[in-house]
Design a binder for these strands. Structure first.
Lengths: 133, 133
DNA sequence: ATAGGGCTTCCAGTCACTGGAGGGTCAAGG
DNA sequence: CCTTGACCCTCCAGTGACTGGAAGCCCTAT
């Protein structure tokens, strides 16, 4: 399979697939003409990577998860630990975003949004106390 | 005021302040020794920027918001539009994260997390259907 | 022979900083 | 007067995970 085929089948752009080879996540063979030649196992790995990335795992997490996947002597606790740490980080980010969202929503509702210059949003951003939240 | 003073007062690292000058968000004067010399108005702007960034606005949004802040003929509708667009993006991101979170949480709960290799998390990542969600 | 599509590599850019090297400035203490 | 330490300066490179584009080769069909 050429890169275009695996791109279609894995849903990943060719650029991304080349990048994954660059950073050593996959090692496709080469045809005589220099084209990358992907086996089923490469496609499988790319699909794995695509799904792990879709769950928000970092590339380094993906590397770890793939290594665990290919390690017959893994313990599921190792996988779970990676996933739990990631979940914690997601929760943190969600909390951050929700806090921003709450402030922003309040400000937006306080703003008339008309032709006049008076604006509570700008007033809040420009307020002179030191509170960064 | 030197950069250290404004850093302490604004809560922004000196590096960030220099960066903001680089990209034209502020224009502090210079002392004879070459040091940046910040006026109250610079400090005010930096505080404004810090708060806008804390609400998740991009640098380009900050630029727009600062311009509006300094424009006596602004209409609050312009500010509100920027804020509303940003809110939409935050909501999108929250939704994405919550969807990841849900999947991840399910997988984590399905995983024993013991010394055995069997792991529903890896099984899911390696499943052979094309569903990327 | 040429046109098109696909493939290759390499370089640069994204976003918003952050770290570090290498060096100048200033006030205080010995 | 010298040194120490805390400042400050610029410039370059790196972060994460790609993405865009240029320049050029390969392959098939007309």
């Amino acid at each position: 399979m050429n890169i275009g085929d695996v791109a279609r089948q894995s849903g990943l752009p060719p650029k991304t697939i080349r990048y994954y080879e660059d950073i050593g996540l996959i090692r496709p063979q080469r045809s005589e003409n220099g084209y990358r030649s992907f086996r089923e196992s490469d496609l499988h790995k790319l699909a794995f990577l695509g799904r792990a990335r879709a769950l928000g795992f970092t590339i380094e997490d993906c590397r770890t998860l793939m290594a665990l996947y290919e390690d017959d002597h893994r313990e599921s606790a190792q996988v779970k630990a990676v996933a739990e740490e990631h979940l914690r980080q997601i929760d943190e980010k969600i909390a951050q975003l929700q806090s921003m969202r709450a402030t922003l929503d309040t400000l937006i509702h306080a703003c008339a949004g008309d032709h006049r210059p008076d604006c509570p949003i700008l007033q809040d951003l420009a307020r002179s106390d030191a509170n960064q939240a």
